[in-house]
Amino acid sequence: MTIWINEQLDPSGMVHACIACCDQKAAEDCHASFVDNLTDSQKAAGWTAQLRTVESWDDVPVNSLKLG
């Protein structure tokens, strides 16, 4: 099973938003939203949005919204 994880991170690497799901299309749409919702000042300060995959729900960050 592939689980898609979307994370929005501040310049120090701290996760401020995290959503995990098994649907690749939904994950890609969510990632686009995370990127679009970063302000120009956040981007300039080093905020990022990343999309990554894991193989187990055990590997999903605890603080994430998990959509199974």
Results as ranks from 00 to 15, higher is better:
T2W: 01
T2Y: 02
W4S: 05
W4V: 01
N6E: 12
E7D: 08
E7F: 12
D10N: 15
P11I: 12
S12P: 01
G13D: 11
M14D: 11
M14W: 02
V15H: 04
A17P: 01
C18W: 03
I19N: 04
I19T: 13
A20Q: 08
A20G: 12
C21W: 00
C21F: 01
D23K: 07
Q24R: 15
K25W: 04
K25C: 03
A26I: 13
A27I: 12
E28Q: 15
E28C: 12
D29P: 01
C30E: 08
H31Y: 15
A32N: 14
F34L: 04
N37V: 00
L38A: 08
T39H: 09
T39I: 12
T39P: 06
T39N: 08
S41D: 14
S41G: 04
Q42W: 06
Q42D: 08
A44D: 10
A45W: 03
G46T: 09
W47E: 13
T48R: 10
T48P: 00
A49H: 02
Q50R: 15
L51G: 01
R52M: 03
T53K: 02
V54F: 00
V54M: 04
S56R: 13
W57Q: 03
W57C: 11
D58W: 03
D59I: 06
D59V: 01
V62E: 14
N63H: 09
N63F: 01
S64W: 04
L65K: 05
L65F: 07
L67Y: 06
